[in-house]
Design a protein around this nucleic acid. Sequence first.
DNA 1: CACTTGACCTGTCCGC
DNA 2: TGCGGACAGGTCAAGT
Length: 286
Amino acid sequence: MPELPEVETIKNDLNKLARGQLILRLEVRKPKLLKPSTKAVRWAIVGKVIKQIERRGKLLIFYLNGEHLLLMHLKMTGQIVWQPPRGRFLTGGHPIVGVSSVPNRFTHLTIYFKSGARLYFNDVRQFGYWQVIAKKELPKIYSKFGPEPFSLEFTRESFWQSLKKRGRTTIKAVLLDQKVVAGIGNIYADESLFLARVRPSKRVSTLSKNNAGDIYKAIKVILARAIKARGTSFNSYVDGQGRKGTYWEKRLVYGRRGEKCKRCRNIILKTLVAGRGTHYCARCQK
DNA sequence: CACTTGACCTGTCCGC
DNA sequence: TGCGGACAGGTCAAGT
C-alpha cells in the first residue's frame, strides 16, 4: 500500500477525527485479520477511548486508555474508512476500484463508536491486519524498524554506515528494507533513486559516499513532497468525500514506462529489481 | 550469514 | 468474448 506518506496522512486525519472516541463494539467478519484471534482481544479494546494515533514505518498505532494498544497494517490493499456520526466518508489507504460505499464485500473489520461514528477496514487481498498488544510489547515491535526518515537518528552518516554493512545486493533492495530506513516502499524507492540519479539495480558495494548522500537527500525530498500531496492514489476511485492524494500526478518515474524522462527525454524503462517492478531512466541513472 | 524466492489473497489488465 | 498468465503500493518464512 500505502507507504509512509499515505500512512502519515491517515494518521494525521484520524488524530483529528477519532481522538476521544469511545469504542462500543468490534465487528469481526474475517477473524484471521485480527490478531490474536481469541475473544479476549475484543474485551481488551471495548469500552476504551482512543487517545492518540501514531505511525512507525507503515504501521499505525492506536493508543487507548488501559493496558492495550491497537495496531493496524494496511499492507498492499488495506483501506481505512472513517464514517462520522452523520455526514460523508473519509478514506485513507488503497482505493478500491468501483466500490464507493462502505461497508462492502471487502469490509472485514469494523469499530462502532458510542458517538455513532464507525471505522471500517477494507482489504481486497486480505494481507493487512489489526493486532491488539499489551503496551509493554511495543518496544519489541518498534525494534524491528530502522530509523524514521525525518528523525534525528537518520543522518547522512548513519545511512552511509548501514549501506556499508551490506554486500552484493542492490540499492533498491536496501531502500525497501525497513531496518535501513522505515517507511519506503516500491513507489518512493523508485522516485528517490530517480531524483538521486542512481540506478535501482546498482550494487550497494559500488556506491560512493556522494551517491549515498544524494540518495539520503532524495529520500527526504520525495517523502516530504508526497506527504504534502497527501500521498499517492491510483485509478479513478472516489469516495464520498473525494479526498485523494495527488502525488500520482507529480510522480517522476513510477508507472511511467514508455514515457519520456522528465530530465533527459529518454524513454523510461521498467524491469524487475529485488523482485519488484522497477522504473528508471537508463541515461540519467547510472 | 546475506540474500533471494515463494507464499499469503483477490482483482485487473494484456496478449492471443 | 474468453482464457491464461503476469502483475499489483508489503512482509515474512523458507530456501540457496
